[in-house]
Design a protein around this nucleic acid. Structure first.
Lengths: 140, 140
DNA sequence: CTTCTAAATCAGAATCTTTCTGATTTTATT
DNA sequence: AATAAAATCAGAAAGATTCTGATTTAGAAG
């Protein structure tokens, strides 16, 4: 369902439904946590052993522009990617030891307090919020 | 004053007050916006033309561990650094076109709303919050 | 002031992520 | 089945950051 909707959205924008693109989407849909480009590439290699790494990056950029994918940065020196499902706006709780992530539904922009401190002449487009620390397993 | 306090703090931790380290601190104190490692290096070269880039990174890591410096990521593919002055906790407003930044004094963790949504068994150590968009000059 | 040692620096290579280039292949339409 | 635009592949390139091994230096001790 999600998968078909996204394919539909891609088609309507004249994007070709290549095998690699389909596989990337399936991987993102299956993923339980945000994945690094490298992790996505490794999984795709199993099905398409001759794949170019570039294909992963090109498609992730495309999907990000189409707002189908979110690019996240958790101070790990590389980005991670997750599906951007409407009606599921969230932020992340990130464990600094194991790298585990959990969704945080509360959003700083929802209360008006913060938005009120932004100058009126600044046009907000996006925002990021992450909480770092140690999960139950990793804290001492 | 700020400068002397930091030198004092470094000394007390048995860190040597090398010329390069002093210069780096002066640059950060003078800076009006967070600087990329490359920008810091370029400024240091004027005074120490034989400097190694590595020295910049090594010292920034050290200062970050000592909580004298904040490392920021504004989705530009590289980090930026700023002094971490106590009593000046803030986040950033970042212009996606010109790269300009402004301080945002409101903090998502101040209201209890968000903290309440974090599981009790997660030990929070740090957090990040950035608002992206277009500044007065850059919006159409 | 001189000696000494750990810490810091330099120079350059290495690593890693991400982007680019040019040739080839594929999707989807005609 | 032919076609053109889009996408892919393979490998190089760019850029940030980290590492290595030899050399230098800050600060302490004599």
């Amino acid at each position: 369902m999600i998968y078909e909707n996204i394919l539909e959205q891609l088609s309507s924008q004249k994007c070709k439904l290549t095998l690699q693109r389909r596989e990337l989407l399936k991987i993102l849909i299956r993923a339980r946590t945000p994945l690094a480009a490298r992790e996505i590439y490794d999984r795709m290699l199993k099905k398409y052993p001759n794949m170019s790494f570039d294909t992963v990056y090109r498609n992730l950029s495309l999907l990000q522009e189409m707002q189908i994918v979110n690019r996240l940065e958790f101070q790990e020196g590389r980005s991670r990617y997750e599906l951007n499902l409407s009606q599921d706006h969230h932020h992340h709780l990130v464990c600094l030891k194991c790298g585990g992530t959990w969704k945080l539904r509360a959003c700083p922009l929802e209360g008006l307090n913060i938005v009120n401190t932004v100058p009126e002449d600044f046009k907000i487009t996006t925002h990021r919020f992450e909480v770092f620390g140690y999960c139950r397993q990793c804290r001492d």
